[in-house]
Write a protein that binds this DNA or RNA. Structure first.
Lengths: 134, 134
DNA sequence: ATAAACCTTGGAGTTTGGTCAAAGGTCAAA
DNA sequence: TTTGACCTTTGACCAAACTCCAAGGTTTAT
């Protein structure tokens, strides 16, 4: 059984983060001491690892919550359910990557058109481009 | 001269967005009517176009503010100054793209390892992978 | 004149994931 | 026993970019 500070330190997160996860339904401690201290057991620790690993691959806390619901009653769900959450996230990421690539390309074009030297910005092609009627 | 509603409608943004931009130092109207209404002139309109265009290629409002400072006194700045802001943004975007690609690859691996069928999630390789000690 | 659309200001709310502060109780080591 | 670290709860704050609300003044068209 860990107290909140021990578990937080073990995984290099803040105690406040654990309290936040509890408040938002992600991870509640399995018990409390007589004085009201949160007590986390081994299963709680496994669950925290799940959360941190899912965060590390880009899931939002809401998405992690969905996965945790499935994980809590695995037998009631199919592999298909899990896989589709992951695939949906992949699509989401691919869309964001595409958008950022577009931004990158537009900006690279602007940068390429600019001499970038010590000349006055009075006739700067980048500034001009930002001002045009779309 | 436009009133706030006219300019907002012309560019399909909210009046509140214009007030927000004014409050945050991005775009102040050039004048006020006797009754206190904001009055935007042609230069204000050009400036708004600048803001919207810069947003459209991924700049944050803080970054746009920097560009506007340069644009306001172009002769006092060099092309180099403008280009370096743009190039910094390109680097920033490339870093984010790299991170998202990493997330995408990790998740794609997880998805590929899962049968994704109607079998019980009891032995789901995705859920297992999220639980391992790092 | 009237009514509705338009405008003003100031402040609060939303989103997401935390983080901080205050007041006060508990625990462990010296 | 004392002290300092640790814990609790509650509520507010932070970031960034809006958006909403309330109260009240102004403008425009009928």
């Amino acid at each position: 059984m860990y107290r909140i500070g021990e578990l937080a330190q073990r995984y290099e997160i803040k105690t406040d983060t654990l309290r936040y996860y509890e408040k938002h339904g992600l991870l509640a401690p399995s018990g409390r001491s007589d004085s009201g201290y949160r007590l986390y057991n081994d299963e709680d620790e496994v669950k925290l690892r799940f959360i941190l690993r899912a965060k590390a691959v880009g899931f939002s806390l809401a998405q992690i919550h969905e996965l945790l619901v499935i994980d809590a009653s695995r037998a009631k769900w199919a592999c298909h359910d899990v896989k589709s959450i992951v695939e949906k996230k992949v699509v989401e990421l691919e869309q964001k990557i595409a958008e950022l690539n577009q931004f990158r390309d537009s900006l690279q074009q602007l940068a390429d058109a600019c001499c970038g030297g010590p000349e006055s910005a009075e006739h700067c092609s980048i500034l001009d481009a930002l001002e045009v009627r779309q």
